[in-house]
Amino acid sequence: MSTQTLTNQTEIKQSKFKLWKADVKHTVSEMKKNKVSYLMMAPFLTLFCLFTVLPILSSMVLSFTYFNMLEIPEWRGLYNYVRLFLEDDIFLIAIKNTLVFAFLTGPVSYLLCFVFAWFINELTPKIRAFMTLVFYAPSMCTSIYVIWTYIFDGDSYGLANAYLMKLNIIDTPIQWLTDVNYNVGIIIMIQLWLSLGTSFLAFMAGFKSLDHSLCEAGAIDGIKNRFQELVYITIPQMKNILLFGAVMQISSAFAVGPVPMALGGFPSTDYSLHTVMVHIYDYGQVRYEMGYASAIAFLLCLAMIGTNKVIQKLLKTND
């Protein structure tokens, strides 16, 4: 009995090996057949590996070290990660703030991008071009958001304070950007103002590549209004672009940081605007602890990958 199972096992092993060998042979011949495909990808992928993949991998390795950018990195094992969760109270605040920003701005701005791309797409060409410019312009220049400090200046020279005081709604100026009662809300508003960017334009391009004859066919088949058309005809055609938008939205929603830092100060009042990105900046650019900063960046990336998996599953079940 036992010898029989033993021979069975070796047989299985042998057959598995044969399968594997055939697999390799098949793969190699497939690769040879698709030589052109690899050639077409080669220039891009070479540069991509050199300047994106390799730096990301080295950053991951650095996250296990102590590295002050002057001395040779010193291996620390998991110490940076232990320190993040057990000793760094501010990191926990940063996680909380990042989640607040990500879950309030991410989905809302995704929806805004889609809805306004949909609305604007139906305008006449000239108005459409103008409206696209108006909605997209905030994302076009990276520093234009600084103008918000003119609106929400903390003294009475700020537009918001001046007009609220003129109307006797308030009698002393409000510190919009440093008062913890207001600053989070205002930054969220500004982030939303800034967020009709990549996804919005990609959706616009998506609407432009739609097949219009399907809408007419739909009208004959009994589609009555614009919502039914959107759900049954437009969205199924745009699934690929919606997925692209979701990934872009995740990466920008979790990366909130430069805007609150420029407007709300660094460090912000009671760390109310301290996000994970700000924390990375703090350790990487201010304290020169690259190892620690890399550990934070790695965790942030993991959080985004996790969210991406969940959202892709949601998009797929909605088929």
Partner: peptide, 10 residues
């Protein structure tokens, strides 16, 4: 999805 600003050094 990797946006850390930590890749500038590598």
């Amino acid at each position: 999805l990797f946006t850390g600003g930590t890749i500038a050094l590598p």
